Amino acid sequence: MNPNKYISDVVKKIPPSGIRKFFDLVTNSKDIISLGVGEPDFVTPWEIRKEGIETLCRGNTTYTSNLGLLELRIAISYFLKTHYDLNYDPEKEIMVTIGASEAIDLALRALLNDGDEVLIPEPSYVSYAPCVILTRGVPVFIPTDEKNNFILTPDDLRSKITSKTKALILLYPNNPTGAIMKKEDLEEIVDVIIEKDLIVISDEIYSELTYEGKHVSIASLPGMKERTILINGFSKAFAMTGWRLGYIAAEHEFIEAMNKIHQYTTICAPITAQYAAIKGIYECEEDIIKMRETYDQRRRFIVNGFREIGLDCFEPKGAFYIFPSIKKTGMTSEEFCEKLLKEEKVAVVPGNAFGPSGEGYVRVSYAYSIDKIAKALERIKRFAEKIL
């Protein structure tokens, strides 16, 4: 028997994650300093962990509503209002998901018919295009450029729209570049979005990790709430990656459609994580601020470090990544990363893992201690001195 012949042609054509594929090389290696994983190095704040423990001790181990605990949806509504001036009805316009990853999948499956096109600015997070393909949609990439601060411009957006375009995915603050789109940047693309009748899937998982000013959601702009599916979660800002908890805020009709899929596949998010997240929203604001301040310190330290080494480095204004250019080395992104790993035992991610316009760059996470970053910079400097 050949199991491979039974596997879907669509699945066969999807390449493995460029991030995971590269880090298979790291798994069994010793003395590696990895600056590759996009995961907070902070432990989940104690009040959240304590609530999780107490929830289990109380015996709260059942299913919840498909949409999630109403108490959590009320808390999320409060969070969105107080942080981003967004108004969502917790009973009808918010649903809780198993991480932001499930939220992305639900949004795409609820929206797309065969052949519908989805616009994806890139460099961008690796899972969007495969998720579009798995829904029988067509991903269409919009290259962004460092000279424009890696933001999506109205001209770039308009140039990729066809009669089959249905949705636009936005990820700002951006993974991998750390770019943000300010209110005025978003306002410039809103007219195109409304004119062309597009739906926006706005992945705002890094919204609380914005270092200059406050994050602005495109859903807060006139005419955009009704055509935006807002995705967020607790993994990054609350350091809750392993709790697997995200959420969607959108018009009731969108929520109803996504909940149909959710109830037949995952049923609901884990109840323990939901109760813990309520505590996080109401009592862990100071923890979020402290983590953000620490990331900001690391951000400035690592950007300065790369520039002193002699590698050009775009200054990120959000998330916890830098995206330095390695073009002056004459190497491809993968060559640079493989040689750096082999010769100096530092792991970073090739920029082309995030799309063709990421070629010539590498993604470096600063979700690590200053000491670890400093040691990695010493090794990268030694490596660069041999090739520059």
Score class of each variant (00 low, 15 high):
211 Y>N: 10
234 F>N: 07
215 H>F: 15
236 K>S: 05
190 V>E: 07
204 E>N: 12
208 E>Y: 02
236 K>I: 09
193 I>C: 03
220 S>D: 07
230 L>P: 11
216 V>M: 13
208 E>G: 13
210 T>W: 09
235 S>Y: 00
216 V>G: 12
192 V>A: 02
213 G>A: 12
234 F>E: 03
194 I>R: 04
192 V>C: 01
200 V>I: 03
201 I>Y: 02
219 A>H: 13
205 I>C: 07
236 K>F: 07
210 T>F: 04
192 V>Y: 03
216 V>F: 10
224 M>L: 09
211 Y>F: 15
228 T>M: 07
223 G>H: 12
191 D>V: 01
200 V>W: 00
201 I>M: 03
216 V>Q: 13
201 I>P: 01
197 D>H: 02
195 E>A: 11
211 Y>T: 14
197 D>P: 00
234 F>L: 08
227 R>H: 08
189 I>V: 13
203 D>V: 07
197 D>Y: 00
222 P>Y: 06
223 G>D: 13
189 I>D: 05
236 K>L: 10
203 D>K: 02
213 G>L: 11
222 P>F: 06
210 T>E: 01
191 D>E: 15
192 V>R: 05
197 D>C: 00
217 S>T: 13
195 E>R: 14
204 E>A: 15
191 D>P: 01
224 M>W: 10
213 G>C: 13
219 A>T: 14
205 I>Q: 07
231 I>D: 05
193 I>E: 05
228 T>H: 08
231 I>A: 10
193 I>A: 04
198 L>Y: 03
202 S>Y: 11
229 I>P: 09
193 I>P: 03
194 I>C: 00
210 T>L: 01
232 N>K: 04
236 K>R: 06
189 I>Q: 07
225 K>H: 12
200 V>Q: 02
234 F>H: 06
233 G>C: 05
219 A>F: 10
209 L>R: 02
194 I>Y: 01
213 G>N: 12
222 P>A: 07
204 E>W: 02
232 N>E: 06
219 A>R: 10
215 H>D: 14
235 S>F: 00
194 I>S: 00
192 V>W: 02
236 K>M: 09
226 E>Y: 11
204 E>C: 11
209 L>S: 02
220 S>L: 04
198 L>W: 02
221 L>Q: 15
215 H>V: 12
228 T>Q: 11
187 E>I: 03
